[in-house]
């Protein structure tokens, strides 16, 4: 029994140590102030679609910068995977912590509907950033890239590199993610409208670079004459670049969506020829502005669409380089 007690004590000690970590954690800048409530509540929560993704980090940077300027504090949370079953508990806990506003990138149009509605019902100003839900009427604002336009821009980039046309393929993440579906649609509409191009359809990588690489190298086995690939997000682009390299294919234009450090590297290496960069920083900045406007009784825009920057090797040192996503603020 004596030894049992000792180990129990060790276990409790470990738990306390873990709890103690929380005070020293890097982003706990709002600790202690989260229970303010009322008008003096200056807390904004940001729930990412997935933790550790440069797109969301860049957005976080925009949010933090703007919030600081306006006198608010920001707490950022995100699930380990882009998965509603992991994101819902986080949103529920954020709701319990009663921030003044919640900026959130929903991971599923249906599954996140009810939890976010609950947050809005608790009096939290909800701003949907990047992605949305089936019925966003509870949200004070929705801010996202004009994804259909983004898809069209990607097609234009391929057309510019391959004016004579040919077969084009899309590598996407998962169906059901509103922004990605819109990008694919924009690309598909533009490709089908142009008779010089043969649209091969879309393959889903489930947001896994290895799967994307496999899909691309297999597609190249079947159709070695593919001239262009549009990869709709970060991981799909990384995987597509790997797949093209694995298949040893040359003279093929890959247009990536998003501009994380790895895509910029791929662009520099010549594996990817163009990137359609969103403006996550702007999305974040706009999100904070709308949330604060809603909190202070200012005028709120229900829907904001942000633009794109096309990055190629040529503009990398200037405008294009600035549009690249950050891995830290």
């Amino acid at each position: 029994m004596r030894s049992n007690l000792r180990f129990t004590a060790a276990g409790l000690g470990a738990a306390l140590a873990l709890a103690a970590c929380s005070t020293g954690a890097p982003s706990s800048d709002s600790s202690g102030g989260s229970s303010g409530g009322g008008n003096d509540n200056k807390n904004i929560a940001f729930v990412q679609g997935v933790a550790g993704d440069e797109f969301y980090i860049t957005m976080q940077c925009g949010i933090e910068a703007k919030a600081k300027e306006l006198g608010y504090t920001v707490t950022t949370q995100g699930p380990q995977k882009f998965d509603p079953t992991l994101q819902k508990p986080i949103v529920d806990s954020v709701t319990a912590s009663k921030p003044a506003a919640l900026l959130v990138a929903p991971t599923d149009v249906q599954a996140m509907q009810a939890p976010l509605q609950q947050a809005a019902a608790a009096g939290i100003k909800v701003v949907l950033v990047d992605t949305t839900v089936n019925d966003p009427s509870f949200a004070v604002s929705e801010i996202s890239s004009d994804n259909v336009g983004g898809g069209k821009a990607a097609f234009d980039a391929i057309k510019q590199a391959k004016p004579s046309g040919g077969k084009v393929l899309v590598i996407s993440t998962d169906p059901g993610v509103s922004t990605v579906d819109a990008r694919v649609k924009g690309f598909e509409d533009a490709a089908k409208a142009d008779s010089a191009f043969n649209y091969l359809g879309v393959q889903y990588s489930h947001n896994d670079p290895a799967t994307a690489a496999n899909l691309v190298s297999s597609a190249l086995q079947k159709d070695p004459d593919i001239v262009g690939i549009f990869a709709t997000n970060l991981f799909s682009a990384e995987g597509s670049a790997t797949g093209v390299r694995q298949a040893g294919a040359k003279d093929l234009t890959i247009v990536g969506f998003d501009a994380g450090p790895n895509q910029i590297k791929a662009l520099e290496d010549g594996t990817v020829q163009a990137l359609v960069a969103q403006q996550p920083g702007t999305i974040g900045t706009d999100g904070v502005e709308q949330a604060v406007a809603a909190l202070t009784g200012g005028s709120v825009e229900k829907k904001i669409q942000t633009g794109f920057t096309i990055i190629t090797k040529d503009n990398l040192s200037g405008e294009g380089g600035q549009a690249a996503y950050k891995s830290t603020c």
């Binding site: 929380s22 890097p26 982003s27 949370q77 995100g78 380990q80 986080i90």
Partner: peptide, 19 residues
């Protein structure tokens, strides 16, 4: 409980997986 608590006190998501 750890996840909920960490979110509420505002600890980075990375610390949750560590814990």
């Amino acid at each position: 409980v750890l996840q909920s608590g960490f979110v509420i006190v505002g600890v980075s998501p990375y610390w949750q997986t560590v814990a």
